[in-house]
Design a protein around this nucleic acid. Structure first.
Lengths: 170, 170
DNA sequence: CCCTATCCATAATT
DNA sequence: AATTATGGATAGGG
């Protein structure tokens, strides 16, 4: 590979760009400013991204530190989200309903895995990953989840429509 | 991890980054490669973004030129989307995504993760799982992703090498 | 084909 | 000027 040992913290005459400091912003005001900058940077990237090809579909949703929502969408946030959610006729949502919010805001019980995952393969593996690997792993999981969801959806279509079937999972 | 090929007889030197020609990509193959790169760049930005503060909420959804879905989410795509939509009754749709049949493989380099296992857990299982198992698996992935995300943030914060983390999570 | 990773050089950004 | 992001070419996996 290439060594990235360009550690020189003593550099301070700099008009130059500072090395990325990936840590939490201390003061709230700094956070706000940084948030705006980074958000703009991100949206700009996204904008360029969408110019790469015609039928690009991209959406970004972000909440500010004060919970104010900002979004970028091409051609439109809702369009992309709907596609992602697989809801083709999103005009009127709220048709079918399992009437059970099982996803929970990231507080899904770990027992799900801890008790059923014999040996806890993931526990062992994750421990040995470095930061970079973790980042990739995290992204991979997102994709994996998408694929599984896809699979589920297809499976569901193929079979007799039994949505009660899923009613109680968690 | 991966061997760095130092062997190179005919080193064809890259022409370097071209001028910022933000036009439609001509060839499909170029588009695909560029898509991949820019997506990684975008997700990386997003990743950094999320480390600015703890309760960051950010989601990105993008479809590849071939309509394959990719997403980045912190803490989770659906969480952010739900907040954005303010739709609390989306449980029926919240986990289902995309319409194309790309069943099966994900992009995870599992060699990094499960070296000792004979056959990759995910490859082995997802194909053979029934709907019920898939749903559980999906839920597990959700949890796992959150855990990894947590781990990543923790790592970033402390800048300490892999420590015994998972033993005491949640 | 579709997708990802890597190398090199350089444009873009701070 | 230091650092990052990315285009082009290329290799490899599926």
């Amino acid at each position: 590979m290439q060594e990235t040992e360009l550690v020189n913290t003593t550099r301070r005459w700099g008009t130059g760009r500072k090395k990325v400091e990936m840590k939490k912003i201390e003061s709230k005001s700094s956070l706000i400013v940084t948030f705006c900058k980074r958000r703009n940077g991100l949206f700009k990237k996204a904008s360029e991204f969408c110019n790469l090809y015609d039928d690009a579909n991209l959406a970004i949703i972000v909440l500010s530190p004060n919970q104010r929502p900002y979004s970028f969408g091409h051609p439109d946030v809702n369009t992309v989200v709907d596609q992602y959610l697989g809801d083709q006729e999103s005009s009127e949502r709220n048709n079918i309903s399992c009437s059970e919010d099982t996803r929970g805001k990231n507080n899904m019980d770990c027992d799900n895995i801890n008790e059923e995952g014999e040996g806890c393969w993931w526990e062992r593996s994750v421990e040995d990953m470095n930061l970079e690997e973790l980042e990739k792993f995290r992204a991979s999981l997102e994709t994996l989840k998408n694929n599984v969801a896809m699979r589920v959806r297809e499976e569901r279509r193929t079979r007799v429509s039994t949505r009660d079937f899923l009613g109680g999972f968690s």
